[in-house]
């Protein structure tokens, strides 16, 4: 009986302590950053506005592999592969419906070429919802974004214009199929 009583008393006491501790917060400094009066510092890995980047040679990095589209939990990325006369893949169109995008960054994680990147820019509101649908020409920038050195076709075995078979990183020249020599 006494135990129960003390236990209940303890509960009441803890409520009172809670009240007191919360009351003390009246005299703490507020943590709020008063955006837009104060612009917060955004970290480079912040998941904001999505861009498409170019490789160090200035060519489109996106190879239209569709991995971002399939990784997207809200299915807001649609694209179509096409290729140039030398066999380099690129998207014929690349569309993100930002009115559906949840900025989860899965597309960036899925991207094997560092083409799609999320940037710290988060001010993307529009008055017309149709304006939230972005095509490739709206997202493609002229730089490499966050990753400066990676060039997918320099490590991939597929030949493209300016890079033939065996010219990628760590590749031997093409074998001679007419030879039986070891």
């Amino acid at each position: 009986m006494l135990k129960i009583f003390l236990h209940q008393l303890n509960i009441i006491w803890s409520q009172i302590v809670s009240l007191w501790l919360v009351f003390l917060h009246l005299f703490h400094k507020s943590d709020t950053v008063e955006y837009p009066d104060v612009k917060p510092h955004m970290f480079p890995r912040w998941r904001g506005r999505i861009i498409l980047t170019r490789d160090p040679d200035g060519e489109e990095r996106c190879v239209a592999c569709n991995l971002c589209a399939v990784a997207c939990p809200v299915d807001c990325i649609a694209l179509q592969k096409t290729e140039d006369e030398d066999g380099r893949w690129y998207p014929e169109f690349f569309r993100i419906n930002f009115s559906r995008c949840i900025m989860c960054g899965f597309c960036e994680e899925a991207c094997p070429t560092h083409a799609i990147q999320l940037t710290p820019d988060f001010e993307m509101a529009e008055y017309v919802r149709q304006d939230m649908v972005w095509e490739k020409e709206h997202m493609l920038i002229d730089g490499t974004g966050k990753y400066h050195d990676y060039n997918f076709y320099k490590v991939a075995g597929k030949a493209i214009g300016g890079k033939g078979k065996g010219e990628a990183l760590d590749e031997l020249p093409p074998t001679d199929r007419r030879s039986l020599m070891p």
Partner: peptide, 16 residues
């Protein structure tokens, strides 16, 4: 079940 792009494939015509 992995079909992608449902909310973007027609968005250029109408976002709705």
């Amino acid at each position: 079940h992995r079909y992608s792009g449902r909310t973007a494939m027609r968005a250029n015509i109408n976002v709705h």
